[in-house]
């Protein structure tokens, strides 16, 4: 019974057409591939759709390949220099931030902001402040040494 208005047939065709590309690429399960294959054998219009999609893909595949006259390469010297420059930039920025914090803490310390007897709410943090100052100083020395080593390496190159 071939009836174009049969809702079952129509939905079957719609379902098939929605999966035709996957069918062409063999990206369906074995069961689904088999179902579609059977449907295509029995349905003329779906078969035409299938052939037209196949032709479209074939046309795309036969498009000529593009070739460039340029050869893409990463330039070793440039890359190394850029990496070193970036490293130096990060190191010097971090050193600058650490130095600023250290200066601020030292100013606060000189202004008796952290003294135990002061009226300041930060009073009583004396040893903690000394520890922070020392830590910042060590970090700053390490960072400056790293910058000097990096500069020395660059000069060697």
């Amino acid at each position: 019974m071939k009836t174009w208005f049969n809702p079952f047939i129509k939905s079957e065709c719609l379902r098939t057409r929605a999966r035709l590309t996957s069918y062409l690429d063999c990206e369906l399960s074995d069961k689904e591939q088999q179902e579609l294959k059977l449907h295509l054998k029995s349905c003329q219009s779906c078969c035409e759709e299938y052939n037209s999609l196949r032709q479209t893909i074939s046309l795309l595949q036969h498009m000529p390949e593009i070739r460039s006259e340029h050869t893409f390469r990463i330039d070793e010297k440039n890359v190394t220099k850029k990496t070193c420059d970036r490293k130096l930039l990060i190191l010097s920025r971090t050193a600058a931030v650490v130095a600023i914090i250290l200066v601020l803490v030292c100013i606060g310390d000189l202004g008796h902001l952290f003294t135990p007897t002061g009226d300041s709410p930060l009073g009583g943090q004396f040893w903690l402040v000394r520890g922070v100052e020392l830590g910042l100083l060590v970090a700053l020395i390490v960072l400056i040494s790293c910058i000097l080593v990096e500069l020395h390496r660059q000069r060697k190159r």
Binding site: A18, R19, T21, D25, E27, S52, L53, Q55, T56, I57
Partner: peptide, 13 residues
Amino acid sequence: VRSRLNRGLYYLR
């Protein structure tokens, strides 16, 4: 991906 490919190919056709 399936629906984009399907729609794309139909549109292209």
